[in-house]
Design a binder for these strands. Sequence first.
DNA 1: CGTAGTGTTGAATTGAATCAAGTGTCGTGG
DNA 2: CCACGACACTTGATTCAATTCAACACTACG
Lengths: 264, 264
Amino acid sequence: MNRAITAEKSHPANEVRISTRTNAQSGKHCPRSIDVSCASCRLSELCLPIALNENEVDRLDKIVRRNRPNKKGSHLYRQGDRFKSVYAVRSGSFKSYTLTSNGRHRVAGFFLPGEIIGMGGIASKTYVSSMIALEHSSICEIPFNQLERLSQQLPSLQQRLFAIMGNEIAKDQDIHTLLSDFTAEQRVASFLLGLSSRFSRTALSVTHFRLPMSRNDIGEFLGLTLETVSRITHALQRKGIICVNYRDIELTDIEALRDVVEPT
Amino acid sequence: MNRAITAEKSHPANEVRISTRTNAQSGKHCPRSIDVSCASCRLSELCLPIALNENEVDRLDKIVRRNRPNKKGSHLYRQGDRFKSVYAVRSGSFKSYTLTSNGRHRVAGFFLPGEIIGMGGIASKTYVSSMIALEHSSICEIPFNQLERLSQQLPSLQQRLFAIMGNEIAKDQDIHTLLSDFTAEQRVASFLLGLSSRFSRTALSVTHFRLPMSRNDIGEFLGLTLETVSRITHALQRKGIICVNYRDIELTDIEALRDVVEPT
DNA sequence: CGTAGTGTTGAATTGAATCAAGTGTCGTGG
DNA sequence: CCACGACACTTGATTCAATTCAACACTACG
């Protein structure tokens, strides 16, 4: 049915290499390139640099490490590792998961470009979950003690950090609502809407995207089984609200989808 | 069965008044008193002042407002109110709740002495949940822009704030696990253990305490109905693991309770 | 001392999990 | 480049844990 050509697909993996070419449209570098500075990164309006002036971004830039891209399935860090850095997703996507006491997986969250990873480890000095790349991805590493020191000198950076962390806390409250109040159908609908709005900041289309995660991942995140996720997506399709083809999702009626989450 | 005399009960409500008497045992003021300084507050090892030196605590102390005690059922703030301050619980307890789209309540969390309230509002500049006193309680108000300014000058305060917020993020992940993975029995057991360890920092007994919240509150927090909470607590009692008498809880076999959460 | 609110308990119902069998897709190695 | 095998996904039948509905008991507060 849907032959999706997503933004991801337009960057074949073998195109990822050191590059200094500028992005034709925006004058900003493709975030896949290793040597992109914060000032020239296409994601600078989403990420840490918001509200920093040119000089401040330069100073932030000096402590950011742009590592080699992460292969699909590779770990950024593991639960229990010593906390050293937070990370900003540059391209691709990650999932964080914990191993529960009974040995089962549980997905704690998904992370898309522009989002900050690893803040759960600040207090305990230990990462509280493992982080794994869902596809070929790249990140910026920011050593936290340096970030702390710098935000001591740059009030707007400190402010930005408090805001990012406060936002994380607020977001977790929404997940709490979802898990304690919502039916399976509401959860899946809410999940798709959330992904859509997060994709909208970087992807080509708000209504048509490719899921980077499996049904099982979605289930473990939403507190459902993979079978239920599959059943629900197809039920939503039968109602004409979305169009599913494996990981290819098209939201054909966003209003109806919102109505599933909050019946009016 | 259990005639509980809790720490709370030993401070009759009418004892709460302006006072400069020092606490006989510790030389520190009773946290109920309105004019207790941070330096002399019994909770200083739990709250913001940890890791601050004398001079730093004094400067923090200057921006803290010690408001009149909150009556049971009174609101500290409401969902949607403009964010101005974070609060430290001095005595008593609070619950935060949100009104979901369908008009139902949902309890986001409970807050005990020494814990910090309101950080979800930092990013949006608006409180994301309402906060209500579960009993006669008192708090310290800390205007956030002043706190930000001060932590710009005091590295250890900034560090402490990052740690508190990071801890909040890590804690939310545990709740996520609880809600997506645990059975009703595991949730209740985990909830009781969590309360116990939090009470242990300020209350007289780790194994015997009085719940400040109703079965309905617990249910809304754990994603269960009040009937289920009631059934489970009595099932745990029948197994000899706890002893319930309305809001009076005694953990008679903590090891067995841990075993309910993580079967070995 | 009465009553509204809070908690307990039972029976019936149901939404999602589990168990099970099959189909489709994609990455890999020949 | 194609074929194979592993994995991901779909779909159906059955089971079960928790909800819902309902009636009643206890407590605590004015």
